[in-house]
Measured scan of single mutants.
Amino acid sequence: DDWEIHFNNITIRLHGVSEEQIEELKELIKNGAHEEELRKWAEEVNR
Protein backbone atom coordinates (compact mmCIF):
# COMPACT_ATOMS: atom_id res chain seq x y z
CA ASP A 1 0.00 0.00 0.00
CA ASP A 2 0.97 3.65 -0.37
CA TRP A 3 1.01 5.81 2.71
CA GLU A 4 1.71 9.44 3.48
CA ILE A 5 2.50 10.31 7.08
CA HIS A 6 2.76 13.84 8.43
CA PHE A 7 4.31 14.88 11.73
CA ASN A 8 6.54 17.68 12.99
CA ASN A 9 6.37 19.42 9.60
CA ILE A 10 7.82 16.31 7.95
CA THR A 11 6.03 14.32 5.27
CA ILE A 12 7.01 10.70 4.81
CA ARG A 13 5.82 8.97 1.64
CA LEU A 14 5.88 5.20 1.66
CA HIS A 15 5.17 2.80 -1.18
CA GLY A 16 4.46 -0.90 -0.84
CA VAL A 17 4.58 -0.83 2.95
CA SER A 18 2.58 -3.29 5.02
CA GLU A 19 0.17 -2.42 7.82
CA GLU A 20 2.64 -4.11 10.20
CA GLN A 21 5.46 -1.82 9.07
CA ILE A 22 3.22 1.22 9.57
CA GLU A 23 2.57 0.06 13.14
CA GLU A 24 6.36 -0.15 13.66
CA LEU A 25 6.72 3.37 12.35
CA LYS A 26 3.95 4.65 14.64
CA GLU A 27 5.75 3.09 17.60
CA LEU A 28 9.02 4.79 16.62
CA ILE A 29 7.26 8.14 16.37
CA LYS A 30 5.37 7.61 19.62
CA ASN A 31 8.65 6.77 21.36
CA GLY A 32 10.16 10.03 20.15
CA ALA A 33 12.36 8.72 17.35
CA HIS A 34 14.55 11.36 15.74
CA GLU A 35 14.66 12.05 12.02
CA GLU A 36 17.85 9.98 11.66
CA GLU A 37 16.20 6.90 13.20
CA LEU A 38 13.20 7.31 10.92
CA ARG A 39 15.48 7.56 7.88
CA LYS A 40 17.19 4.31 8.88
CA TRP A 41 13.81 2.64 9.28
CA ALA A 42 12.76 3.88 5.83
CA GLU A 43 15.99 2.62 4.25
CA GLU A 44 15.42 -0.84 5.75
CA VAL A 45 11.82 -0.93 4.54
CA ASN A 46 12.76 0.20 1.04
CA ARG A 47 15.27 -2.63 0.51
Rank of each mutant, 00 (worst) to 15 (best):
D1Q: 14
D1W: 14
D1N: 13
D1V: 15
D2A: 08
D2K: 11
D2H: 13
D2G: 11
W3K: 05
W3H: 05
W3E: 02
W3Q: 04
W3F: 10
E4I: 14
E4L: 09
E4F: 13
E4W: 11
E4S: 08
E4D: 08
E4V: 12
I5V: 09
I5S: 08
I5M: 08
I5D: 02
I5K: 04
I5Q: 05
H6E: 09
H6N: 10
H6T: 14
H6K: 13
H6V: 11
F7A: 04
F7T: 06
N8S: 10
N8K: 11
N8Y: 04
N8H: 10
N8A: 11
N8C: 10
N9E: 10
N9F: 08
I10F: 06
I10H: 08
I10E: 07
I10T: 08
T11D: 06
T11C: 05
T11H: 05
T11W: 06
T11A: 06
I12V: 05
I12P: 02
I12R: 02
I12F: 05
R13M: 13
R13Y: 10
R13L: 14
R13T: 13
R13Q: 09
L14P: 03
L14V: 11
L14S: 02
L14T: 03
H15S: 11
H15Q: 11
H15P: 07
H15N: 09
H15G: 04
G16N: 14
G16E: 08
G16S: 12
V17F: 07
V17G: 03
V17C: 02
V17Y: 04
S18P: 03
S18G: 05
S18C: 04
S18T: 13
E19M: 11
E19K: 13
E19F: 13
E19H: 12
E19Q: 13
E20M: 12
E20L: 10
E20G: 11
E20W: 10
E20Y: 07
E20I: 09
Q21C: 04
Q21F: 05
Q21Y: 08
Q21K: 12
I22E: 01
I22Y: 06
I22C: 08
I22K: 09
I22S: 02
E23D: 12
E23S: 09
E23T: 11
E23F: 12
E23R: 13
E23P: 01
E23Y: 09
E23K: 12
E24D: 06
E24R: 10
E24A: 11
E24S: 10
E24Y: 08
E24T: 06
E24N: 06
E24K: 11
E24H: 11
L25K: 00
L25A: 02
L25N: 00
K26A: 07
K26W: 14
K26G: 04
K26L: 14
K26M: 14
E27N: 12
E27T: 12
E27M: 14
E27S: 11
E27W: 14
E27Q: 12
E27V: 09
E27C: 13
L28E: 00
L28C: 01
L28V: 02
I29G: 00
I29T: 01
I29M: 08
I29Y: 03
I29D: 00
I29P: 00
I29S: 01
I29C: 12
I29W: 03
I29Q: 01
K30Y: 05
K30I: 06
K30V: 07
K30N: 08
K30M: 11
K30E: 07
K30H: 06
N31A: 13
N31Y: 06
N31S: 12
N31F: 04
N31T: 06
G32P: 00
G32Y: 02
G32S: 02
G32R: 02
A33R: 01
A33V: 08
A33K: 02
A33Q: 01
A33Y: 05
H34A: 13
H34T: 15
H34N: 15
H34Q: 14
H34S: 15
E35R: 05
E35A: 08
E35G: 05
E36W: 09
E36V: 06
E36N: 09
E37L: 05
E37R: 03
E37I: 04
E37M: 08
E37Q: 10
E37H: 05
E37Y: 05
L38Q: 00
L38E: 00
R39N: 05
K40E: 08
K40S: 08
K40G: 05
K40P: 00
W41G: 00
W41K: 01
W41Q: 00
A42D: 02
A42Q: 07
A42V: 14
A42L: 15
A42M: 13
E43P: 00
E43H: 05
E43R: 02
E43T: 05
E43L: 04
E44S: 05
E44D: 11
E44C: 01
E44F: 03
E44T: 05
E44Y: 06
E44H: 10
V45L: 12
V45I: 13
V45T: 08
V45A: 15
N46G: 03
N46H: 10
N46W: 13
R47P: 14
R47T: 15
R47C: 13
R47S: 15
